[in-house]
Design a protein around this nucleic acid. Structure first.
Lengths: 114, 114
DNA sequence: CCCATATTTCAATGATTATCGAATTATGAG
DNA sequence: CTCATAATTCGATAATCATTGAAATATGGG
Protein backbone atom coordinates (compact mmCIF):
# COMPACT_ATOMS: atom_id res chain seq x y z
CA UNK A 1 0.00 0.00 0.00
CA UNK A 2 1.39 3.37 -0.95
CA UNK A 3 1.75 6.27 1.42
CA UNK A 4 -0.22 8.58 -0.87
CA UNK A 5 -3.15 6.17 -0.78
CA UNK A 6 -3.03 5.98 2.99
CA UNK A 7 -2.92 9.77 3.30
CA UNK A 8 -5.92 10.09 1.03
CA UNK A 9 -7.83 7.54 3.12
CA UNK A 10 -6.94 9.17 6.44
CA UNK A 11 -7.74 12.61 5.07
CA UNK A 12 -11.07 11.33 3.83
CA UNK A 13 -11.96 10.10 7.31
CA UNK A 14 -10.69 13.22 9.06
CA UNK A 15 -13.85 15.21 8.55
CA UNK A 16 -16.97 15.30 10.64
CA UNK A 17 -19.52 14.36 7.99
CA UNK A 18 -17.34 11.85 6.20
CA UNK A 19 -16.42 10.11 9.43
CA UNK A 20 -20.11 9.89 10.31
CA UNK A 21 -20.92 8.54 6.85
CA UNK A 22 -18.23 5.92 7.02
CA UNK A 23 -19.37 4.74 10.41
CA UNK A 24 -22.97 4.56 9.25
CA UNK A 25 -21.83 2.46 6.31
CA UNK A 26 -19.70 0.23 8.54
CA UNK A 27 -22.79 -0.40 10.61
CA UNK A 28 -25.04 -0.84 7.61
CA UNK A 29 -22.89 -3.67 6.29
CA UNK A 30 -22.89 -4.90 2.69
CA UNK A 31 -26.39 -3.60 1.95
CA UNK A 32 -25.10 -0.06 2.23
CA UNK A 33 -27.16 3.12 2.00
CA UNK A 34 -28.25 5.45 -0.79
CA UNK A 35 -26.64 8.87 -1.14
CA UNK A 36 -29.93 10.60 -0.39
CA UNK A 37 -30.53 8.50 2.71
CA UNK A 38 -27.09 9.43 4.00
CA UNK A 39 -27.71 13.12 3.32
CA UNK A 40 -30.99 12.98 5.19
CA UNK A 41 -29.61 10.90 8.05
CA UNK A 42 -26.89 13.47 8.69
CA UNK A 43 -28.83 16.62 7.81
CA UNK A 44 -26.40 17.66 5.11
CA UNK A 45 -27.42 19.20 1.74
CA UNK A 46 -27.33 16.75 -1.14
CA UNK A 47 -24.57 18.59 -2.96
CA UNK A 48 -22.37 18.62 0.12
CA UNK A 49 -22.97 14.93 0.69
CA UNK A 50 -22.12 14.20 -2.90
CA UNK A 51 -18.82 16.00 -2.45
CA UNK A 52 -17.99 14.00 0.65
CA UNK A 53 -19.03 10.69 -0.88
CA UNK A 54 -16.76 11.40 -3.83
CA UNK A 55 -13.85 11.90 -1.43
CA UNK A 56 -14.54 8.63 0.33
CA UNK A 57 -14.89 6.80 -2.97
CA UNK A 58 -11.73 8.34 -4.39
CA UNK A 59 -9.93 7.23 -1.25
CA UNK A 60 -11.17 3.71 -1.89
CA UNK A 61 -12.99 3.49 1.43
CA UNK A 62 -16.45 3.01 -0.02
CA UNK A 63 -17.88 1.23 -3.04
CA UNK A 64 -20.81 2.48 -5.07
CA UNK A 65 -23.39 0.74 -7.20
CA UNK A 66 -26.43 2.03 -8.96
CA UNK A 67 -29.83 0.59 -8.16
CA UNK A 68 -32.50 2.22 -10.24
CA UNK A 69 -32.31 5.96 -9.60
CA UNK A 70 -30.33 5.61 -6.41
CA UNK A 71 -26.63 5.17 -5.88
CA UNK A 72 -25.89 2.86 -3.00
CA UNK A 73 -22.69 3.30 -1.03
CA UNK A 74 -21.09 0.67 1.16
CA UNK A 75 -17.93 0.48 3.27
CA UNK A 76 -14.92 -1.36 1.89
CA UNK A 77 -13.65 -3.38 4.83
CA UNK A 78 -10.64 -4.57 2.89
CA UNK A 79 -9.41 -1.02 2.42
CA UNK A 80 -9.84 -0.47 6.14
CA UNK A 81 -7.78 -3.57 6.92
CA UNK A 82 -4.97 -2.46 4.66
CA UNK A 83 -5.00 1.01 6.15
CA UNK A 84 -4.59 -0.32 9.68
CA UNK A 85 -1.89 -2.77 8.62
CA UNK A 86 0.05 0.10 7.06
CA UNK A 87 -0.14 2.21 10.18
CA UNK A 88 1.09 -0.61 12.37
CA UNK A 89 3.74 -1.98 10.01
CA UNK A 90 6.82 -3.29 11.78
CA UNK A 91 5.32 -2.31 15.08
CA UNK A 92 8.00 -2.30 17.77
CA UNK A 93 10.71 -3.22 15.33
CA UNK A 94 8.98 -6.16 13.74
CA UNK A 95 7.97 -8.42 16.60
CA UNK A 96 4.69 -10.08 15.81
CA UNK A 97 1.83 -7.97 17.08
CA UNK A 98 -0.48 -7.40 14.15
CA UNK A 99 -4.00 -8.76 14.51
CA UNK A 100 -6.43 -9.84 11.86
CA UNK A 101 -9.26 -7.37 11.37
CA UNK A 102 -11.93 -9.50 9.86
CA UNK A 103 -15.24 -7.80 9.71
CA UNK A 104 -16.53 -9.15 6.42
CA UNK A 105 -13.15 -9.11 4.77
CA UNK A 106 -13.52 -8.67 1.07
CA UNK A 107 -12.21 -11.01 -1.61
CA UNK A 108 -8.84 -9.89 -2.92
CA UNK A 109 -8.05 -8.33 0.38
CA UNK A 110 -4.41 -8.71 1.31
CA UNK A 111 -2.74 -7.71 4.52
CA UNK A 112 0.75 -7.16 3.21
CA UNK A 113 2.68 -4.99 5.52
CA UNK A 114 5.11 -3.57 2.98
CA UNK B 1 -14.03 8.29 22.52
CA UNK B 2 -15.40 11.48 21.07
CA UNK B 3 -15.78 12.16 17.41
CA UNK B 4 -13.79 15.39 17.65
CA UNK B 5 -10.87 13.49 19.15
CA UNK B 6 -10.99 10.91 16.39
CA UNK B 7 -11.09 13.60 13.71
CA UNK B 8 -8.08 15.30 15.24
CA UNK B 9 -6.18 12.00 15.28
CA UNK B 10 -7.07 11.10 11.71
CA UNK B 11 -6.26 14.61 10.53
CA UNK B 12 -2.93 14.42 12.30
CA UNK B 13 -2.06 11.23 10.44
CA UNK B 14 -3.34 12.47 7.09
CA UNK B 15 -0.16 14.31 6.20
CA UNK B 16 2.97 13.03 4.53
CA UNK B 17 5.50 14.01 7.18
CA UNK B 18 3.33 13.26 10.17
CA UNK B 19 2.40 9.85 8.82
CA UNK B 20 6.09 9.11 8.29
CA UNK B 21 6.91 10.31 11.80
CA UNK B 22 4.20 8.20 13.37
CA UNK B 23 5.34 5.10 11.53
CA UNK B 24 8.94 5.71 12.52
CA UNK B 25 7.80 5.99 16.12
CA UNK B 26 5.65 2.86 15.86
CA UNK B 27 8.74 1.02 14.70
CA UNK B 28 11.00 2.62 17.26
CA UNK B 29 8.85 1.31 20.08
CA UNK B 30 8.86 2.68 23.64
CA UNK B 31 12.38 4.14 23.34
CA UNK B 32 11.09 6.68 20.87
CA UNK B 33 13.16 9.24 18.98
CA UNK B 34 14.28 12.82 19.60
CA UNK B 35 12.67 15.69 17.67
CA UNK B 36 15.97 16.50 15.98
CA UNK B 37 16.55 12.90 14.96
CA UNK B 38 13.10 12.80 13.38
CA UNK B 39 13.72 16.05 11.51
CA UNK B 40 16.99 14.73 10.18
CA UNK B 41 15.60 11.30 9.32
CA UNK B 42 12.89 12.87 7.18
CA UNK B 43 14.84 15.83 5.82
CA UNK B 44 12.42 18.38 7.23
CA UNK B 45 13.45 21.72 8.81
CA UNK B 46 13.35 21.71 12.59
CA UNK B 47 10.59 24.31 12.79
CA UNK B 48 8.40 22.32 10.42
CA UNK B 49 9.00 19.14 12.38
CA UNK B 50 8.14 20.92 15.59
CA UNK B 51 4.84 22.00 14.10
CA UNK B 52 4.01 18.47 13.01
CA UNK B 53 5.04 16.95 16.32
CA UNK B 54 2.79 19.40 18.11
CA UNK B 55 -0.13 18.25 15.96
CA UNK B 56 0.55 14.61 16.72
CA UNK B 57 0.90 15.34 20.42
CA UNK B 58 -2.25 17.44 20.51
CA UNK B 59 -4.06 14.57 18.83
CA UNK B 60 -2.82 12.29 21.59
CA UNK B 61 -1.03 9.97 19.19
CA UNK B 62 2.43 10.53 20.61
CA UNK B 63 3.88 11.09 24.06
CA UNK B 64 6.83 13.35 24.81
CA UNK B 65 9.40 13.37 27.58
CA UNK B 66 12.49 15.48 28.06
CA UNK B 67 15.88 13.83 28.35
CA UNK B 68 18.57 16.40 28.89
CA UNK B 69 18.40 18.85 26.03
CA UNK B 70 16.36 16.57 23.79
CA UNK B 71 12.66 15.90 23.69
CA UNK B 72 11.90 12.27 22.98
CA UNK B 73 8.69 11.37 21.18
CA UNK B 74 7.08 7.94 21.21
CA UNK B 75 3.92 6.44 19.73
CA UNK B 76 0.89 5.94 21.95
CA UNK B 77 -0.39 2.49 21.03
CA UNK B 78 -3.40 2.86 23.29
CA UNK B 79 -4.61 5.89 21.34
CA UNK B 80 -4.21 3.91 18.15
CA UNK B 81 -6.28 1.04 19.56
CA UNK B 82 -9.08 3.38 20.56
CA UNK B 83 -9.04 5.05 17.16
CA UNK B 84 -9.47 1.76 15.35
CA UNK B 85 -12.16 0.59 17.73
CA UNK B 86 -14.09 3.79 17.07
CA UNK B 87 -13.90 3.39 13.32
CA UNK B 88 -15.17 -0.17 13.45
CA UNK B 89 -17.80 0.31 16.14
CA UNK B 90 -20.89 -1.81 15.63
CA UNK B 91 -19.41 -3.20 12.49
CA UNK B 92 -22.09 -4.92 10.41
CA UNK B 93 -24.81 -4.06 12.86
CA UNK B 94 -23.09 -5.26 15.98
CA UNK B 95 -22.14 -8.86 15.24
CA UNK B 96 -18.84 -9.62 16.92
CA UNK B 97 -15.95 -8.85 14.63
CA UNK B 98 -13.63 -6.51 16.49
CA UNK B 99 -10.13 -7.79 17.13
CA UNK B 100 -7.73 -6.86 19.85
CA UNK B 101 -4.87 -4.71 18.64
CA UNK B 102 -2.21 -5.35 21.18
CA UNK B 103 1.13 -4.03 20.19
CA UNK B 104 2.40 -2.89 23.57
CA UNK B 105 -0.99 -1.76 24.78
CA UNK B 106 -0.62 0.97 27.30
CA UNK B 107 -1.99 1.00 30.82
CA UNK B 108 -5.32 2.80 31.04
CA UNK B 109 -6.13 1.72 27.53
CA UNK B 110 -9.77 0.89 27.11
CA UNK B 111 -11.48 -0.40 24.05
CA UNK B 112 -14.94 0.95 24.69
CA UNK B 113 -16.87 1.12 21.52
CA UNK B 114 -19.23 3.91 22.53
C1' DC C 1 28.43 33.52 33.44
C1' DC C 2 29.02 32.37 28.47
C1' DC C 3 28.50 29.48 24.77
C1' DA C 4 26.66 25.71 22.01
C1' DT C 5 22.91 22.61 21.30
C1' DA C 6 17.91 21.25 21.06
C1' DT C 7 13.50 22.69 20.36
C1' DT C 8 9.65 25.71 20.05
C1' DT C 9 7.10 30.05 18.90
C1' DC C 10 6.12 33.73 15.74
C1' DA C 11 4.59 35.74 11.47
C1' DA C 12 3.80 35.92 6.73
C1' DT C 13 2.65 33.41 2.53
C1' DG C 14 0.71 30.05 -0.50
C1' DA C 15 -2.16 26.03 -1.04
C1' DT C 16 -5.85 23.10 -0.02
C1' DT C 17 -10.56 22.21 1.76
C1' DA C 18 -15.53 22.81 3.11
C1' DT C 19 -19.88 24.76 2.00
C1' DC C 20 -24.11 25.03 -0.59
C1' DG C 21 -27.38 27.04 -4.13
C1' DA C 22 -28.08 26.66 -8.93
C1' DA C 23 -27.59 24.21 -13.05
C1' DT C 24 -26.88 19.66 -15.14
C1' DT C 25 -27.12 14.68 -15.95
C1' DA C 26 -29.30 10.09 -15.43
C1' DT C 27 -33.17 7.07 -14.58
C1' DG C 28 -37.79 5.46 -14.41
C1' DA C 29 -43.03 6.02 -14.65
C1' DG C 30 -47.04 7.16 -17.27
C1' DC D 1 -42.17 12.66 -24.86
C1' DT D 2 -42.88 14.74 -20.34
C1' DC D 3 -42.55 14.89 -15.68
C1' DA D 4 -40.62 13.76 -11.16
C1' DT D 5 -36.92 11.90 -8.59
C1' DA D 6 -31.89 11.02 -7.43
C1' DA D 7 -27.51 12.41 -7.69
C1' DT D 8 -23.54 15.04 -9.37
C1' DT D 9 -20.95 19.07 -11.22
C1' DC D 10 -20.07 23.96 -11.17
C1' DG D 11 -18.67 28.26 -9.15
C1' DA D 12 -17.82 31.45 -5.72
C1' DT D 13 -16.57 32.23 -0.88
C1' DA D 14 -14.78 31.37 3.65
C1' DA D 15 -11.92 28.80 6.52
C1' DT D 16 -8.18 25.86 7.61
C1' DC D 17 -3.52 24.03 6.96
C1' DA D 18 1.62 23.61 5.56
C1' DT D 19 5.93 25.84 5.17
C1' DT D 20 10.04 28.04 6.77
C1' DG D 21 13.43 31.63 8.37
C1' DA D 22 14.13 34.33 12.23
C1' DA D 23 13.65 35.09 17.04
C1' DA D 24 12.86 33.22 21.56
C1' DT D 25 13.18 29.62 25.22
C1' DA D 26 15.37 25.66 27.66
C1' DT D 27 19.35 22.82 29.07
C1' DG D 28 23.99 21.43 29.95
C1' DG D 29 29.18 22.04 29.77
C1' DG D 30 33.31 24.60 30.91
Amino acid sequence: MESATVIRALGALAQEHRLAVFRLLVQAGPDGMAAGALAEALGVPASSMSFHLAQLAHAGLVAQRRVSRSIIYSADYGAMNRLIAYLMANCCGGTACLPELDCLSVAGDDRSVA
